[in-house]
Amino acid sequence: MADVADLIYAVARSPWALFALVGLLVIDGFFPLVPGETMVVTLAALGASGHGPEPVAVLVVATAATMVGDGIAFLIGRSIHPARRVWMRGSKAQTALLWASGRIERNPGTILVGAKFLPFVRVAVTMTAGASGLPAWRYLVFSLLSATIYTAYHVGVAVAAGELFIADPFVGLAASIAFGILSATAIGGIHGMVTRAQRSRAAASVEHGDL
């Protein structure tokens, strides 16, 4: 067991760990089925306990990589409407696209920042921002803000857990990943409830108007 732990620590301290982090986060920007967030939390938690890269390095690298991945999604939306992408035709993706299209033009900053914490929604919002004709310079400002907040949140949680369980880094890692899953589930649940409530009010308004 000690040998396995030593191997994991060695990999985490290797420069290749940050290269892997960049690759995962870039892909995660337009294809949210890779463990980008988990890699951020893993490296930051191990770094906080002295067995990985410095959390500040994770924060800087992850923020930059997240912006690159989001930028690719933005360009995809600019060139090919997201609704035409094969992998965006599922029910979750289509729901996210409908939600994003109705809001991105009214308040792009708030939506781009808030959507970062919802995997399918954040990709749909970013692609919709590109398809909507949002100026690139405005998008870059919002992208920097959203990527920084999003990354700082995950690094902060990981560092807190890593320092709290510094004597047992793997317990800290498990705690930070568990917290991330629970918080993402809670945010997704709240988003779903708000969306359903808005749809119900809209349907009731239409029905009342018909009457």
Rank of each mutant, 00 (worst) to 15 (best):
158 A>I: 01
86 V>Q: 15
177 I>F: 05
83 A>M: 11
73 A>L: 03
76 I>G: 07
170 F>E: 08
119 P>K: 03
188 G>F: 05
196 R>E: 13
90 G>D: 14
125 V>C: 08
180 G>W: 01
97 L>G: 10
4 V>A: 09
193 M>P: 00
13 R>A: 10
120 F>L: 11
169 P>D: 02
109 G>Y: 05
80 I>P: 02
189 G>D: 06
142 F>I: 05
75 L>Y: 06
155 V>F: 00
2 A>N: 10
68 V>W: 04
186 A>K: 00
43 L>T: 03
119 P>L: 04
25 L>Q: 13
116 K>L: 00
83 A>D: 13
3 D>L: 09
158 A>L: 02
134 L>D: 03
181 I>H: 02
94 Q>M: 15
209 G>S: 09
111 I>C: 04
18 L>H: 08
80 I>W: 10
180 G>I: 02
135 P>C: 14
98 L>W: 13
34 V>C: 07
209 G>V: 05
8 I>S: 04
114 G>K: 02
104 I>S: 05
47 G>I: 08
40 V>T: 14
150 Y>D: 14
9 Y>A: 12
187 I>Q: 07
86 V>C: 06
5 A>T: 07
18 L>F: 09
211 L>P: 05
211 L>D: 12
42 T>F: 03
192 G>N: 13
194 V>W: 08
105 E>K: 14
33 L>Y: 14
114 G>W: 02
99 W>C: 06
211 L>Q: 10
176 S>Y: 03
64 A>E: 09
28 D>P: 14
4 V>L: 13
128 T>R: 01
27 I>S: 10
87 W>P: 06
39 M>N: 05
13 R>G: 11
72 I>L: 09
127 M>C: 06
170 F>Q: 10
186 A>N: 01
71 G>P: 05
130 G>D: 01
120 F>Q: 08
37 E>H: 06
67 M>A: 05
169 P>N: 02
46 L>Y: 04
19 F>M: 11
179 F>E: 03
120 F>I: 13
146 S>H: 02
34 V>S: 09
17 A>W: 02
125 V>D: 07
144 L>Y: 00
144 L>S: 04
59 L>F: 11
142 F>W: 15
13 R>L: 08
28 D>K: 11
179 F>H: 04
110 T>S: 11
197 A>N: 12
6 D>K: 01
202 A>G: 10
170 F>W: 14
108 P>M: 06
201 R>N: 10
27 I>M: 13
71 G>C: 04
58 V>L: 00
198 Q>A: 12
28 D>T: 09
49 S>Y: 06
140 L>N: 07
4 V>F: 12
187 I>A: 15
201 R>Q: 13
188 G>M: 09
71 G>Q: 11
